[in-house]
Measured scan of single mutants.
Amino acid sequence: MATDAALRRLLRLHRTEIAVAVDSAFPLLHALADHDVVPEDKFQETLHLKEKEGCPQAFHALLSWLLTQDSTAILDFWRVLFKDYNLERYGRLQPILDSFPKDVDLSQPRKGRKPPAVPKALVPPPRLPTKRKASEEARAAAPAALTPRGTASPGSQLKAKPPKKPESSAEQQRLPLGNGIQTMSASVQRAVAMSSGDVPGARGAVEGILIQQVFESGGSKKCIQVGGEFYTPSKFEDSGSGKNKARSSSGPKPLVRAKGAQGAAPGGGEARLGQQGSVPAPLALPSDPQLHQKNEDECAVCRDGGELICCDGCPRAFHLACLSPPLREIPSGTWRCSSCLQATVQEVQPRAEEPRPQEPPVETPLPPGLRSAGEEVRGPPGEPLAGMDTTLVYKHLPAPPSAAPLPGLDSSALHPLLCVGPEGQQNLAPGARCGVCGDGTDVLRCTHCAAAFHWRCHFPAGTSRPGTGLRCRSCSGDVTPAPVEGVLAPSPARLAPGPAKDDTASHEPALH
């Protein structure tokens, strides 16, 4: 009773807030009518008042009428009001819900409408889902798969039609296919003929059939049928067999079959498995989609049935006599038709004709302190090069084509190399640097090759510096006499390219 009084008091307290929050009759008014909170006449009256005075006034009048009803109607109103779709449509209802007392429970059932309790003993237990329907569909599909699609060729003596089998029958139906081979029951999904010589313990000319048996419980189990008994694959494991010639990621696949039913060829011909030897223990289905393919039931050349050999690369099948050149017997292992072999060759040939990528240039590290003349020119003028003790990398590039010797140069053309002071002394051009340390401070000019250098860098042994005729380390061993002091540049003949010694390969005349 306390809860009923509290709900009535809360409705009177929030009546105006609810009326202002509800700006549309749908969905709240319609939901109240659906849950029998508002009768039909009051529903029509509220809609009429909404058209006349507006939605807030109409709902305020409806809530005032609701306060005169019993506690069950008020409880049902609060339940409908706080439904998710009403809270989404009328956003101003959320503060009312947040301020609702926590001790007021809106989930209690309506009085007088409590459903009768059902004894637990009368409640049926839930049924577990079964796979009976899938099993029945598999039974119905198996006879259809064994139905012949056409008439065999005159040369083929193997013609068999499976008798119709009602689904209610649980007995196995067997077809006489000759040579002791028996087909599987209607619940078998796949059958492959297997030679009895590969099964340990088999006697006589009995041949087993590799099947997948579907049981009534819905589970499946792969086994071997020899005669009327089934054997699990673990009985046929043979770890010492060295003649297993397995197909790549293979499961067994029928390579020879008669049109209309699988079996042995007439005249004692023995149908073979995809792999010879003992049956392997793992009978998992292969991951290669080509091995799941269903080959055609007629020859791809003459479009006739009979004894066919199936290609492992495509769905086509052929007569042995229709092949070019014809085959006398079934080859062992994987067999592919000429079209598949030709496609494989065409895929391999473009790969062989692809040009080989060019090898990157060989990189040879230079000892610290040495650099090529090109690196000396590329440096920024007026700045010493940083990191001189790091190992430089010199790339061996292809030799350029031989060019004509340089033409003779006048001494005026070499004027930018040297600057003559007032006393006739050779001065260095701006930006000249030593080729060893890279520093341009207090550098000297070689009178023979006009290269800038430090005496301490080229002659670290402490050799005394002569007063005139300074030469760098590369030119100090040259027998050519030094030019007379005061000459602007060496003779043009000295600039012609010539053979250089091994220790002077990195010091070429550089223009500054």
Rank of each mutant, 00 (worst) to 15 (best):
A5C: 12
A6H: 05
L7P: 02
L7W: 02
R9P: 06
L10D: 04
I18R: 04
A19G: 05
A19M: 15
P27Y: 00
A33E: 08
V37R: 02
E40R: 00
D41K: 00
F43R: 02
E45A: 00
T46N: 00
K50M: 04
K50G: 14
K50R: 07
K50I: 06
C55N: 01
P56S: 04
H60T: 02
H60D: 01
A61C: 01
L62F: 00
L63C: 01
S64F: 02
L66C: 00
L66P: 03
Q69F: 01
A73H: 15
A73I: 14
L75T: 15
R79V: 08
F82P: 00
K83A: 05
D84R: 07
N86S: 02
L87H: 00
R92Y: 00
R92A: 01
P95R: 10
I96T: 00
F100A: 03
P101D: 03
D103R: 03
V104E: 07
L106P: 00
Q108D: 15
P109Y: 06
R110C: 04
R110V: 13
K111D: 01
K114V: 06
P115W: 03
P119R: 04
R127V: 07
L128Q: 04
P129H: 01
K131C: 01
K133Q: 01
A134R: 05
S135R: 07
S135V: 09
A141S: 10
A141G: 13
A142Q: 01
A142N: 04
L146M: 04
L146V: 09
Q157V: 07
K164C: 02
K165S: 05
S168F: 14
S168R: 14
L175N: 03
N179W: 00
G180Y: 05
T183E: 04
S187A: 10
V188E: 05
V188M: 14
V188R: 05
R190M: 02
R190F: 00
A191F: 00
A193L: 03
S195D: 07
S196T: 07
S196G: 09
G197M: 04
G197W: 03
V199E: 08
P200F: 07
G201M: 15
G201R: 08
R203C: 15
A205V: 03
E207M: 00
I209G: 05
Q213R: 05
V214F: 10
E216N: 15
G219Y: 12
K222T: 02
Q225P: 05
G228S: 05
G228F: 03
E229K: 05
Y231Q: 05
P233C: 12
K235V: 14
S241T: 11
G242Y: 15
G242Q: 10
K245V: 14
S249H: 04
G251S: 07
L255F: 14
L255M: 00
V256T: 07
G260R: 10
G260T: 13
A264L: 12
A265S: 10
G267Y: 10
A271Y: 07
R272G: 08
